[in-house]
């Protein structure tokens, strides 16, 4: 019993370390897709809003609102249609954790 818990912890620890070492490279790459308009790491240099530090839930809600048209947009409806809801979540998490 004890042994198996220790083993589980060991494995979880190793996985955790591995995961944080290359924390979701796909989310990181997709977040970088946004940079040419929203700035490197989500820090905009112009009129387009920054994404860095946004709350994940707010980010996801906005993407859904762009997709269904309830938030008016210029380019964003097209971009929202190009990603899945799971990807909105992954992107939201990434921007939330990068201030």
């Amino acid at each position: 019993m004890k042994k198996s818990i220790a083993l589980t912890l060991l494995i979880a620890g190793a996985l955790g370390a591995a995961a944080s070492a290359h924390a979701d490279p796909r989310a990181r790459f997709m977040a970088a897709n946004c940079a040419y308009c929203h700035g490197p790491d989500g820090h905009s240099r112009g009129a387009v809003p920054s994404l860095a530090g946004l709350e994940a839930k707010y980010f996801v809600d906005q993407m859904k609102a762009f997709r269904d048209g309830s938030r008016p947009a210029t380019v964003m409806q097209k971009h929202a249609m190009g990603y899945t809801e799971a990807e909105y979540e992954a992107l939201g998490k990434w921007f939330e954790s990068h201030k």
């Binding site: 040419y36 308009c37 240099r45 112009g46 009129a47 387009v48």
Partner: peptide, 8 residues
Amino acid sequence: YMESWAKN
């Protein structure tokens, strides 16, 4: 937005 795009 175009100006902002260029800077970013």
